[in-house]
């Protein structure tokens, strides 16, 4: 998924090979992660697609099914992965993810601790941010979930950047071996305040902390716990509004036909007073906010370890 492997770097000559992870794009809201393998087929509402037709084609290609339907084959990115991964838990989306990485000031080479791993949506972006030399240690207390996350990171080619541990961070804290080594700690736990003392212990001087909580009561308790060790405590909510764009064709009235847009067809209409009015069609590109949006994801609380 990431360009840190030069062999997988996106380029004009990069084609799909057997075993590659491909994002199959049907529509804006309908995508699927597929591993291309010689003998396999993909069946969806657009028909039957043979993987063998895909191999050797560049990423970004449009491919056709037996009955003439088509899909696009895209190279995976953390953003696309977030849209296709299997939800084992509630996941973080692009607005929160981007803001977390920016606010935690994560750059290549950083050591990041995360709990819980959940479905690995944020973890994938954390891995991208610390690559090629940094590392993400992520912990989940659910053994099976941790295993599935490990499989996912294998599939997305991130296993060299991410280690998944099974551990109850709320109960036990982060492992002692990370004391004073972490550049950033991220918590997405039901009772984050229980893990805050451990998070503080793990961080380097001036290290950054973030906790994601859906409920304001969680935020309240976390902030109280943070004040002992942290400063610059700030809580945010970040949402995205998306827009629909379309070309509208609208009738425009004017009294005489001359002076109208020459190429546009004009229609003549008789008005009640007996005079004639002319109308022509004007087209405009228009944008409006989408009618539905995610109204709440969670509160993001950031803090910086106090300098002693």
């Amino acid at each position: 998924m990431l360009a840190c492997d030069p062999a997988k770097r996106l380029s004009f000559n990069q084609t799909i090979s057997n075993g590659d992870l491909v994002i199959v794009y049907e529509k804006h809201d309908s995508m699927k992660a597929v591993t291309a393998s010689e003998g396999s087929i993909l069946q969806n509402r657009y028909g039957v697609f043979k993987h063998s037709d895909w191999i050797g084609k560049p990423f970004g290609s449009k491919v056709f099914s037996s009955k003439g339907g088509f899909v696009y084959l895209l190279a995976p990115t953390p953003e696309l992965w977030t849209l296709v991964l299997s939800h084992r838990t509630q996941i973080l989306y692009i607005a929160d993810i981007s803001f977390v990485i920016m606010h935690l000031e994560i750059v290549p080479g950083c050591l990041v601790l995360e709990s819980g791993t959940g479905s690995g949506s944020l973890t994938t972006s954390l891995a991208r941010a610390v690559a090629p030399k940094g590392h993400v240690y992520t912990f989940d207390f659910h053994e099976q979930r941790a295993g599935s996350a490990r499989d996912d990171f294998e599939r997305t080619g991130l296993s060299s950047l991410v280690s998944v541990g099974v551990r109850d961070i709320q109960g036990e804290g982060f492992p002692d071996e990370f004391t004073g080594t972490a550049d950033s700690v991220f918590l997405d736990l039901p009772q984050p305040w229980l893990a805050i003392p451990s998070a503080a212990k793990m961080l380097k001087q001036d290290g950054t902390f973030c906790s994601f909580s859906p409920c304001v009561e969680q935020v309240q308790r976390s902030c109280e716990a943070l004040r002992t060790y942290f400063t610059d405590i700030r809580t945010f909510e970040v949402l995205l509004r998306t827009y629909e764009v379309r070309e509208g064709k609208m009738e425009s009235l004017h009294e005489e036909s001359n002076g109208s847009n020459g190429s546009l067809p004009s229609k003549r209409r008789q008005c009640s007073d007996g005079n004639y009015m002319f109308s022509s069609t004007i087209s405009t590109v228009m944008a409006k906010p989408s009618g539905e949006a995610r109204g709440h994801t969670g509160y993001l609380t950031f803090a910086r370890l106090k300098c002693l």
Partner: peptide, 11 residues
């Protein structure tokens, strides 16, 4: 096309 919305809280 996306437009982000950001709100800070006093806690």
């Amino acid at each position: 096309i996306s437009e982000p919305w950001l709100r800070e809280y006093q806690v």
